[in-house]
């Protein structure tokens, strides 16, 4: 089973979020970048498990500059077999999806895994776009996956519960919490990752963004907590009604 796993680079959850260039650009100064957790903990690890059980190869793909190589090497250290980086600074999801679909189209992948969203833009867009471009079915928010006899049975998270689905053919999946357990790369993996192939490819020509950011804003800071006497919950109810106007 050959699996393609799409990975992306995001700021660490604890990063301070601020903007530069007249609020047009994310301020990367002092920010620690990581592999997007949904890509790493769930998509990549479940793909590696499937290949460990059924044979085949895990290829990771990323669309980004050479600053992505550090997270790509980490994916190889965790257990991916080879990697591809499309050398491009993408501005929107459609550009990323077009590049990945273009790479996958002529190659034989049974499944394409993505994380359910990146933790910076939370868009959840790329997976469905790749599926559309390759004319494959898409199963989103997979939190459990079983594979046997060419059939995949998947739990997908929906509002208030789960939906169990079956898919047989080639498909695209987005991974949610629960799909696998995080793996920490060991020393052997880290050593091996250095000699695993990382192919750098040039992007398609004419792949332009379809939406553009026209500036960022940070919401005004909270004015500070108003403490209520724990003996006086009538006062809290009054404030929720009269001041906050939420009840």
């Amino acid at each position: 089973m050959n699996i393609l796993v799409c990975i992306s680079k995001t700021p660490d959850t604890t990063s301070k979020i601020s903007f530069v260039d007249d609020n047009m650009k994310f301020n990367e100064q002092g920010v620690n970048f990581i592999m997007n957790p949904y890509d790493e903990w769930y998509a990549l690890v479940r793909a590696i498990e499937l290949v460990e059980q059924n044979g085949g190869k895990v290829t990771v793909i990323s669309v980004g500059g050479s600053d992505y190589d550090i997270i790509i090497r980490k994916a190889l250290a965790i257990g991916a077999d080879n990697a591809v980086r499309i050398d491009m600074q993408a501005e929107d999801a459609s550009q990323v999806a077009l590049e990945i679909a273009n790479y996958a189209r002529s190659r034989d992948f049974e499944v394409i895994f993505t994380g359910k969203e990146t933790i910076d833009f939370n868009g959840s867009e790329v997976g469905a776009m790749i599926a559309a471009l390759l004319d494959m079915p898409f199963v989103s928010y997979a939190s459990h996956l079983e594979y046997a006899d060419g059939k995949f049975v998947i739990d997908r998270d929906i509002e208030g519960g789960i939906e169990k689905v079956q898919v047989n053919e080639k498909f695209v999946l987005s991974a949610a919490k629960g799909l696998a357990q995080q793996r920490i790369p060991n020393m052997k993996g880290i050593m091996m990752s250095k000699s695993k192939p990382l192919e750098v490819m040039t992007p398609l020509s004419g792949n332009h963004p379809r939406v553009k950011v026209d500036g960022f804003e940070t919401p005004p800071a909270k004015s500070g907590v108003k403490l209520i006497n724990p003996e006086n919950m009538d006062e809290l109810v009054r404030l929720l009604h009269e001041e906050a106007k939420v009840i």
């Binding site: 867009e125 469905a128 776009m129 471009l133 509002e159």
Partner: peptide, 21 residues
């Protein structure tokens, strides 16, 4: 959950830009 599953697909098929959330 279902809306997000089709938004990207609809955008590609209509050659449209997509803004989520």
């Amino acid at each position: 959950a279902n809306g997000k599953s089709i938004a990207g697909r609809v955008a590609i098929n209509l050659e449209a830009g997509l803004v989520s959330m």
